[in-house]
Design a protein around this nucleic acid. Structure first.
Lengths: 197, 197
DNA sequence: AAAATTAAACTGAGTACTCAGTCTGTTTTT
DNA sequence: AAAAACAGACTGAGTACTCAGTTTAATTTT
């Protein structure tokens, strides 16, 4: 593995676990074995390291998302939603450091002044919400999901699932204990209840 | 207003908007008009300022919660839930800086090594989740809410509402546009559907 | 009521330290 | 030998916190 990639990976871990500001170049140099000069040879600034992490992660998530949608077939939209929630939680476990980073304030503060950062973040979030929206639209087509405003409800489902991830990352509650109830709650929220009579 | 209180209020605003680490004592000194020495006369360390902010905020939230529960009467548990959600969003608007602070990583990182911080945070979160749980229990007593595990579902509702607050605070989506749909989604999730036949 | 005493609040220059980023030079690759 | 990659000492700005001393306010003594 090239020094540049070693630096990127270590920086992602440190920025996620300790925060951007609380990670010094000296520390990054020490953990990677690369001299500080080497780091600044590959990246112009500390911020540039962060932006490249975000770009790489975005591409990896889009890749994982495509792999997920390709390999799965669901009977109904509501089952697709179960799968989407599971996928998000699976991804949060697979890329825990990145999700930790996404739950820090730094990316959003940078996004307010840096359009490149904003675009990366938007791509990532749109990708996530799209997953849920597509499940809802599919469910509405096959009749398993009620006729609700798809995008809005997708956002609400996203806040639920992402909130669970936050609980887990911040060690607030045992997120695993809530998983089944989360799936069941989503079903009650979305399911089509045919009007009788 | 005493210097000490001026310092506390300014520190809350700065810690919330800029972050704990990114707020220097020099800046706090400048915005309050108090010399740096004065700040350290009133607080032993920078961290102590944060802990006192948390303690004060906790007391204020408990006070607001009591005022809320005293002055309201609801017909059914499900209506009480609507009120609880509105209360949370109202509080998040009233004490925006504090909610910004609560959505930073610093409090939770400190909580992992500082038991006083952890206890303050637990009191605050338990208070919030209690509000939702009480509504669910009331609704189950009067038959308006389905027999679900009250605490777990209360946590899920909390993640939804707090997620909406996060959207608003981080300027990710227009939270106001989701309010009505959030209330409706919660109702679908909780409502008792009597079995016919 | 004026003066003397005490205590609390406040000040800002100073301290030791950390930081991102630079500079100069060496090694490795082409 | 030229170019790319690497190394680490160095810089100057910024950091939380200290301390010796000053100002202000309250209390006691005359």
């Amino acid at each position: 593995m090239k020094k540049k990639e070693i630096i990127l990976r270590a920086a992602m871990q440190l920025f996620a676990r300790k925060g951007f500001k609380d990670t010094s170049m000296a520390e990054l140099s020490k953990t990677t074995g690369a001299a500080e000069g080497t780091i600044f040879y590959h990246f112009k600034t500390k911020q540039d390291i962060f932006l490249e992490i975000l770009k790489t992660a975005k591409e990896e998530i889009l890749f994982e998302f495509n792999r997920y949608t390709e390999n799965r077939q669901f009977e109904t939209g509501i089952e697709m939603m179960d799968g989407a929630i599971s996928f998000y939680l699976y991804l949060a476990g697979l890329k825990e450091d990145f999700f930790l980073l996404l739950h820090r304030r730094y990316p959003y503060e940078l996004a307010e002044v840096n359009p490149v950062c904003r675009q990366h973040l938007e791509s990532i979030y749109n990708c996530f919400v799209d997953i849920f929206e597509q499940a809802i639209l599919a469910g509405q087509a096959d009749g398993s999901i009620a006729p609700l405003p798809a995008r809005k409800v997708a956002l609400i489902v996203f806040t639920m699932v992402d909130g669970l991830v936050r609980f887990k990352l911040y060690n607030l509650y045992d997120a695993g204990a809530l998983f089944n109830e989360l799936i069941a709650s989503c079903r009650r929220m979305l399911e089509n209840k045919p009007v009788t009579g």
